[in-house]
């Protein structure tokens, strides 16, 4: 068949050593104009080199990550908080949705709804945890929107659940803070900018196509925002944190662009 799916290289066959993360943390901290300028000068010489390991060298990563940080800044300015993503008809919805994580579907750990709680942390006044019952009692918003993965595939999904802006307002979150981070049960974490968190099409999804979200797709609660790439939508959320300290993210720490706004 012409349009065959490839085996994904988005998920490395072996999970990178944690030491790499620590090593890159230093690089992120050092992001700055001086690094960019210094690095740009050596960039000309580096383009003469070929081979796949060029991008991994420290000096090169410093330049590339500085550019990525600059691109975060550009994207925040390109972002129009009132611009709505296209919405689609229920007949176009893919059922079930497409699975993706940093591991295979067989390794998904289902969450027990009875003991699950949504924890709140950071710049939030009312940090009392929420049960699934309480979340389900909130007004529900449905979004039939396109999910776009950084790998290049996409599908139309039908998600519903409480609007994040309304939820953050209700718990007394500091809406002037910079970041909202979502911590997942599978040790996944991604954070988004507050402007995107407050976008009208950003919801805490509990349902897909009218039914509770299936285990592999994030039951009982996941983020669905129409203005970010797929990997910025954590599944199996256990905690929401509002903060002014850059929280990074699972893939952002590994070199993917942090803002990744659509």
């Amino acid at each position: 068949m012409l349009f065959r799916k490839s085996s994904s290289r988005f998920r490395p066959p072996q999970v990178p050593d944690r030491a790499i993360l620590r090593e890159h943390r230093k690089v992120i901290d050092e992001i700055g104009r001086r690094g960019l300028l210094r690095g740009t000068m050596s960039l000309g010489a580096l383009t003469l080199l070929t081979g796949c390991d060029v991008s991994e060298q420290d000096q090169v990563q410093r330049v590339l990550r500085s550019v990525s940080a600059f691109n975060d800044w550009v994207q925040a300015r390109l972002f129009d908080p009132d611009k709505l993503a296209p919405r689609y008809a229920a007949s176009q919805v893919l059922k079930p949705p497409r699975f993706n994580a940093y591991y295979g579907i067989e390794d998904v750990q289902p969450i027990d709804a009875a003991t699950w709680r949504l924890e709140l942390a950071g710049l939030i006044q009312d940090k009392r945890p929420w049960t699934l019952e309480q979340i389900r009692a909130l007004p529900e918003q449905e979004e039939i929107i396109r999910h776009i993965c950084v790998e290049g595939w996409d599908y139309i999904g039908q998600w519903s659940g409480p609007n994040l802006r309304q939820f953050l307002t209700r718990v007394g979150a500091d809406l002037g803070a910079k970041y909202v981070a979502f911590h997942s049960h599978d040790d996944y974490m991604e954070s988004i900018d507050m402007a995107s968190a407050l976008h009208p099409q950003t919801i805490l999804a509990t349902k897909y196509a009218g039914d509770p979200i299936g285990d592999p797709y994030g039951f009982p609660l996941r983020l669905r925002t129409a203005v970010k790439l797929g990997f910025k939508n954590p599944k199996w959320i256990r905690a929401i944190e509002v903060t002014n300290t850059y929280p990074g993210g699972y893939w952002a720490d590994r070199g993917f662009n942090w803002h990744s706004g659509l």
């Binding site: 290289r9 988005f10 490395p12 796949c52 390991d53 991008s55 991994e56 590339l64 990550r65 550019v67 990525s68 950084v150 790998e151 893939w251 590994r254 070199g255 993917f256 662009n257």
Partner: peptide, 9 residues
């Protein structure tokens, strides 16, 4: 680029 993120960078 060694990995996808490097290609993107």
């Amino acid at each position: 680029g060694k990995w996808a993120q490097h290609g993107l960078q």
